[in-house]
């Protein structure tokens, strides 16, 4: 599924969700054994993967979908709001990591995981299939643009 023509938006972004989940777990596992150096490296990778994922959606996919479906105040509005929530938690997690506060980090990461995974389920179950349907004609270009981020 490396060829843009064959992939669906759902598959491509769901795979990216899984990649983010793996990086999340690696950072949290390192914090749980107080391996702070490794935790910092994994968290940085996780943070970058999350920012890239949000950018692919907010800068490329959502505007295309909003243009086509004319629903700027609908589902993408809610998803953007949850991205903001997640960014807030990521900031707090970064601060906890810097202060090496294990309990604070794990409390935040627990919260982020629940928010992130229920957000992902909504996207994978509902929003992405809607974009695949609505944007079928321009899918290769959109996937190419998202890969280039």
């Amino acid at each position: 599924m490396t060829e843009t023509g064959d992939a669906t938006i759902t598959q491509f972004l769901a795979d990216d969700h899984n990649r983010c989940d793996d990086l999340f777990a690696a950072a949290e596992n390192a914090v749980s054994v107080r391996d702070w150096a490794s935790a910092a490296a994994h968290f940085q990778a996780f943070l970058e993967a999350m920012r890239r994922h949000f950018a692919m959606e907010e800068d490329i996919l959502f505007p295309a979908f909003e243009t086509r479906a004319g629903s700027g105040g609908g589902p993408t509005f809610v998803m953007r709001g949850e991205h903001r929530e997640m960014n807030g938690l990521l900031d707090e997690m970064g601060a906890a990591l810097e202060r090496r506060e294990q309990d604070a980090y794990l409390n935040l990461s627990e919260t982020l995981l629940m928010l992130m995974r229920q957000h992902n389920l909504k996207e994978e179950n509902i929003l992405y299939p809607m974009t695949d349907h609505a944007l079928a004609g321009e899918r290769p270009e959109l996937l190419g643009a998202m890969r280039a981020r």
Binding site: A69, S71, G74, P75, V78, K122, L127, A134
Partner: peptide
Amino acid sequence: MIGAGLAPE
């Protein structure tokens, strides 16, 4: 229906 299930309310 577009948006069902994702609107905040």
